[in-house]
Amino acid sequence: MSVIEIKNLTRDYGGKGVFDLTLSVESGETFGFLGPNGAGKTTAIRHLTGFLKPQKGSCAVNGLDCWAESPKIHGSLGYLPGEIAFFDDMTGLDFLNFIAEYRRVKDKTRMRSLLERFELDARGKIKKMSKGMKQKVGITAAFMHDPAALILDEPTSGLDPLMQSRFIELILEENKRGKTILMSSHMFEEVERTCRRVAIIKNGRLATVDSIDKLKAAQVKKYVITLENEKAALAFAKEFAEEDVSETRVTVSIAGNIRELISQMNKYPVAGISMPGQSLEEIFMQYYGGNKNV
């Protein structure tokens, strides 16, 4: 059964926006909603939360129309906005207590355990908090009423790597508890560990919906090998017919198995290896390039 459903959704902001978007998230699924900045992710999400009325098409959560029955939906929905703005004059704790009371959440044990998990002392004024701290307050507000479904717009932005992995743990736990999660991101790595299926949206249109495994298989990974001298670098590059050499650094692109790379590396004086982060655009292009070859 689909819990979150977008059907032929269109919202035209004059070229930008969302066009004829259709996708659905099944019950108990963690679904990644990927797209570069400005692709229309947030616009689509604002329809799901009932902030915007669809120009065409419709959105539903648990079979309820997102525009007409927004208050009912929000009873069992957690939402983390992409750009969080709080009531600045409150402390984090005051704010969370206010939201809990406003939503009529009586049990605050979950709120406390979330604050502990993210090591957040929320007693300070929100105005003075760093971006990461604000993000943690937002995450706590989205999860503290233990909703059955969650819509998270770029949830890890502002979090440091440790907190990012704490967040991923939280998502995995919630997934095990049967929660349905839609999570948007502009980074592949972020959804890689949590989502089984992803949709990629580009210029407001759905580019693809596929399993994360297929996307990963199509992914050409880049490895930057640093050698001890330029001569070795040139010789090493020849082994892979690679031309991307700058001084002692060679960039090798490989899809799938890297056994060959490792065995070659054993023969050369390798000083270091690193993997540059790949943009979603690159992965997206590779995915499409790969499909054409098949």
Binding site: T49, G50, F51, S70, P71, K72, H74, G75, L77, Y79, P81, E83, I84, A85, F86, F87, D88, I99, Y102, R103, R104, A141
Partner: peptide
């Protein structure tokens, strides 16, 4: 500012 999010993304009309 956008803080209205927390007032309308709730089971309140």
């Amino acid at each position: 500012g956008g803080s209205l999010v927390f007032l309308v993304a709730a089971p309140i009309k």
